[in-house]
Design a binder for these strands. Structure first.
Length: 310
RNA sequence: CGCGGGGUAGAGCAGCCAGGCAGCUCGCCAGGCUCAUAACCUGGAGGUCGCGGGUUCAAAUCCCGCCCCCGCAA
């Protein structure tokens, strides 16, 4: 079976590599987002998927826009693939491309669809405190994650789950599920099942402001948010006009005695009122500084005691 | 040339603008006090002030170059 792989971030890489390593599958090309300016110097950097594909000698195509680039359809047709596989490509794929391969486009989505359609399903599952989520293999149609389902696998979430740990779980279970589903689907062994629209929920792309901590939100909700938004957009607050990244926290059994966001230093520990209780900050990163444990932070910034964070 | 903060004792910071004894909190070591402590008291060790050059009677501090860490942005 010949496939073309569409993907961009590091999440997509193990999926590509598993397909490449499968003797029954031939990855004839990879399609990814063009190099983007990145880092402090705004240097152009290739996507993680592009690096991986190039190392494995797979031809890489980068289209600025699948919709507006008229050569995209012809180029992709010429590859003669049986299916396109899409894992976090980053752009919607237009209908005239979806219809090119005989088996259509097979997509991997890290949630149990129709729950959490859109770009941030793992973050939402953690932030909402769901007991489990999963990986869904589906056919793409013109909507955003609305196509019929081919297969899914449930992934359990524990109460210390972070975006990193969940991503690892998805990368551990997803590629095998994709490969087996692809083969069974090609053999005609799977009947796609339409999604139940009444149960659909949509996640938005997170931006920096989503990471600002609302100290009225409640201790449990804030703690889950810290785990869910790890890396991007991160969780942060402001003190004296400076940004403080809050990297890890721990709920306490102390009641809320002061307004939300009020800092109290107790026994050398950094406590913040969280609306319905008190949260301890364990790891923190002041703007312009490296991450540090709260004890180290307090050694140099003791005047934060009694301040209000926003 | 995207914008900005930083590098000072093991950790976190102040000192720099306005040059003049190397400081603070914590940790560490020794001793003391206490029924007791993440408590208190006394003493102590620990420093190429990121690196190289320049100015000066004198540089952590001013000037030039370089290295490294980080926030924003993307």
């Amino acid at each position: 079976m010949k496939i073309v792989f569409f993907g961009t971030p590091s999440l997509a890489v193990p999926f590509l590599e598993t397909l490449v390593d499968n003797p029954g599958i031939q990855v004839v090309a990879a399609v990814t987002q063009p190099d983007k300016p990145v880092g402090r110097r705004h240097e152009l950097a290739p996507s993680p998927l592009k690096r991986s594909a190039q190392m494995r000698g797979i031809p890489v195509f980068e289209f600025a826009s699948l919709k507006k680039d008229p050569s995209a359809v012809e180029t992709l047709k010429a590859l003669g693939a049986d299916a396109f596989v899409v894992v976090a490509y980053g752009k919607l794929i237009p209908a005239d491309i979806l219809n090119i391969p005989r088996l259509g486009c097979v997509n991997v989505h890290p949630s149990l669809l129709p729950k959490y359609r859109g770009p941030s399903p793992m973050q939402w599952a953690i932030a909402n405190g769901d007991p489990d989520t999963g990986v869904t293999i589906m056919q793409l149609d013109e909507g955003m994650d609305t196509g019929p389902i081919l297969a899914f696998e449930t992934i359990g979430l524990d109460d210390t789950e972070t975006l990193t740990s969940l991503t690892k779980k998805v990368m551990a279970t997803g590629p095998a599920l994709l490969t087996s589903t692809l083969k069974r689907f090609a053999a005609g062994e799977i009947t796609p099942i339409k999604q139940d629209e009444s149960k659909a929920t949509i996640t938005n792309l997170l931006d920096r402001e989503d990471g600002r901590i609302d100290w009225k939100k409640g201790v449990a909700g804030i703690e889950r948010m810290v785990r869910a938004y790890e890396g991007w957009p991160g969780t942060w607050t402001e003190w004296n006009g400076k940004r403080l990244k809050v990297l890890s926290v721990q709920p306490t059994d102390l009641k809320a005695d002061f307004p939300p966001g009020t800092v109290q230093v107790k026994d050398g520990r950094l406590m913040v009122e969280g609306g319905d209780g008190t949260l301890e900050i364990l790891t923190i990163q002041p703007e312009g500084k490296a991450a540090m444990p709260a004890s180290a932070f307090l050694a140099g910034y003791s005047e934060i005691n009694g301040a209000t964070l926003a």
